[in-house]
């Protein structure tokens, strides 16, 4: 077990474990330090400089996301100097960021907006330095609008550290630095696997899903595709699935999803091709029937076969309860052990 570390933040005694960063320790102790490039899944980066603090015995203003807690450490998270330095960094970002928040998909869900609000910023004080940047809309599920990018590198770090696909990285220098694909390709030409992990971690409106409907409620469930069993939230609005996000508490996926889970569910669930009525084969082929009639036909016919004449194929895609019911039907009602599933396929 990791060692317990006791230290002080803003005069408050905090207990944390060895290896935790000052920022993480502060956040879990309920002390907010503004941050943008920090993400709990990613290695510390120290790029946005929002989380600077003062630590007794350390020179300057270290970033709390990169400093590990130590016994007896004395941390100060606010003060006029810290505030001014943070505020200037924030103003620099705002001077380089689009101004119309209403026109942004991430309005009210934007972390830059939240930090600005927290810092009490009500106006932009610096000269605008934004220049038009390329937008990549090639991917069917998400787009990259570099005009909104704050270069926190969460996306590129995700692609490197989490998915290890390395489809995106930062290129060029200075304020020409940008998120890019190999040789400035578009997403669809690149090796990107479209998992959307980068989209899930973008704090602003730069990497965003093309589906912009915000759900009115979310339901925690398990993905219906492969056997990893990714825990996910289905977002629902007006009786439809409008969003999917990984559940970071999910033990098998820790919040991650692949292209099918993230982007391949809503559309098939409510697809117009869905079967909506039982069909019974007659002389003119299959015709619609009522549930009652269809079930009666099935029940009546099933009764006519001996246990050796009937076989049941359960689905490896339905729930345990569905499967239990069907094998019970096979054994207890039809009297047969002729029940199998596609486990071997």
């Amino acid at each position: 077990m990791a060692q317990t570390v006791k230290f002080t933040i803003d005069g408050k005694q905090v207990t944390s474990t060895e290896g935790t960063t000052v920022l993480e320790a502060a956040l879990s102790a309920g002390i907010f330090i503004p941050n943008l490039c920090f993400h709990p899944d990613l290695e510390p980066y120290g790029g946005c400089r929002m989380c600077i603090v003062e630590i007794q015995g350390m020179r300057g203003m270290p970033t709390s996301c990169t400093i590990k807690v130590a016994e007896g450490m004395i941390v100060k998270t606010f003060g006029p100097e810290i505030d001014k330095t943070r505020r200037d960094a924030l103003q620099l970002l705002l001077a380089n960021h689009p101004t119309d928040c209403l026109a942004c998909v991430k309005n009210q869900r934007c972390e830059l907006q939240k930090v600005a609000a927290y810092m009490g910023v009500t106006e932009r004080t610096m000269q605008r330095t934004a220049r038009p940047q390329a937008v990549d809309e090639s991917n069917p599920f998400f787009k990259l609008d570099r005009n909104y990018c704050i270069l926190c590198a969460r996306c590129t770090r995700t692609c490197n550290e989490i998915t290890c696909v390395n489809a995106i990285d930062l290129v060029s220098r200075g304020d020409e630095t940008r998120v890019s694909l190999f040789q400035d390709q578009q997403f669809m030409e690149s090796i990107c696997r479209s998992c959307g992990e980068c989209v899930a971690r973008c704090p602003v409106g730069a990497l965003v899903s093309k589906n912009t409907v915000i759900p009115s409620s979310e339901v925690l469930t398990t993905c219906c595709y492969c056997a990893v069993g990714c825990s996910m939230y289905l977002g629902v609005r007006d009786g439809k699935i409008v969003s999917v996000r990984g559940n970071s508490e999910g033990k098998s996926n820790k919040g991650k999803l692949c292209v099918k889970g993230r982007f391949g569910i809503a559309e098939f669930v409510t697809h117009p091709d869905r079967l909506t009525s039982p069909l019974v084969k007659g002389e003119n082929g299959q015709v619609q029937a009522s549930w009652d009639d269809a079930l009666q036909i099935v029940a009546d016919r099933f009764k006519t076969y001996s246990p050796d004449e009937i076989a049941v194929v359960a689905s490896a895609r339905t729930t345990n309860e569905d499967v239990y019911a069907v094998q019970k039907l096979a054994r207890a009602v039809l009297g047969t052990n002729n029940v199998d599933n596609c486990a071997r396929l």
Partner: peptide, 11 residues
């Protein structure tokens, strides 16, 4: 500027 941190890149 390498472009990594805000004060340098945009400052």
């Amino acid at each position: 500027s390498c472009g990594k941190c805000v004060p340098c890149r945009l400052g």
